[in-house]
Design a protein around this nucleic acid. Structure first.
Lengths: 194, 194
DNA sequence: GTCTATAAGAGGATAGAC
DNA sequence: GTCTATCCTCTTATAGAC
């Protein structure tokens, strides 16, 4: 995973920039993190950053592309499957795992929505989120059931972010959130086809 | 409500600043909105802003204080009530209404969490959120039920923000979200005291 | 691939006239 | 209560030496 190894060797500077930048972006926000700060933490100069990335935005774009590939794969896979309850459950399961694998990025996106929306990755993210919702919901179901499907996704987010600060073991909390989310789509699905 | 009247008369400048600032903050984020921009939109100068507010942060603080009083009242009320299912339902109902009345502010806080966390209102907000969770959850309940209580709150948020861009009538969506949220705490409550 | 130096500008904030 | 003028700091970004 890109976020937990030091990468001390020369030649990995690009990777190290991505790691440090993501860490700082997630910690204190995108706008409040300056290139000077990133450079200082890496013991290089701002100019060195510009050798590897054309702009500040390019940094977060590259991180985003590297870490959200699993979601794209998941959507592509699910769109080729029958829309059964078991498929939906698998979607939630994999989505939860993908988030756990890229915690910092997802935390960043959750807490900097206003920023992300104006960045070029905003559109991509929005499209993916909509695609996921489309996989879960039934367009002709009652409104409350549609809400349940969206709420299921939000529950996974909540489980990743908010709950981690409250409870103990993150992995246990993640599983509890997954259980509740699965419960929600199950109800929505059953009321659809009793 | 502070966010839907023009306030054209002189002498309301303070109020007009609050209105315009909140609108811009919610639209494009706190950091990306400059005092110059706020002043321009009001056809005054930056210096005029500084007559009414000591800092940029002071502006959002004052808006926050004006619009989140209902939540404080709600918490105070609920802490004096028995922790029955009906009380919890009433909490969700009122919380949902309070959010509907201050949409812009809640949208702002939702989409600028990273910023809010570093502002002085961050602590206050966090305390309120925790107080709400404490009113809903039973500390000795299974983890999944605790998640349900938190998920109920997040569902109301989701209903306010995300869903509005998808579905038609906001008020209908709000009610559907409230229904799902109520459902969630009901399950958590019943499994607690069967 | 990394540095020094610097451009060019925007941001928040203040002093003091009117 | 609002303006003009200005300060100072920090930002992103570039040019060009090593």
């Amino acid at each position: 995973m890109s976020s937990n190894s030091p990468h001390q060797r020369r030649g990995n500077t690009r990777q190290r920039i991505q790691d440090v930048a993501l860490e700082l972006f997630a910690e204190q926000g995108y706008e409040k993190t300056s290139l000077r700060e990133i450079a200082e933490r890496l013991d290089v100069t701002k100019a060195a950053l510009y050798y590897h990335f054309k702009t500040k935005e390019d940094i977060i774009i590259s991180v985003f592309q590297d870490l959200t590939q699993p979601i794209d794969d998941l959507i592509e896979w699910a769109e080729g499957e029958p829309r059964t309850l078991e498929t939906k459950r698998e979607v939630l399961r994999r989505y939860s795992e993908a988030m756990a694998a890229g915690t910092s990025l997802y935390r960043f996106m959750q807490e900097n929505q206003a920023t992300v929306r104006e960045l070029s990755i905003g559109d991509t993210m929005k499209k993916r989120l909509f695609a996921l919702v489309e996989l879960l919901r039934a367009p002709d179901a009652p409104l409350a059931d549609q809400v349940r499907c969206i709420s299921a996704l939000f529950t996974l987010h909540a489980g990743m972010m908010f709950l981690q600060h409250v409870e103990g073991d993150p992995e246990e909390t993640r599983k509890a959130a997954l259980e509740v989310a699965t419960d929600l789509i199950t109800r929505a699905h059953h009321q659809q086809q009793p």
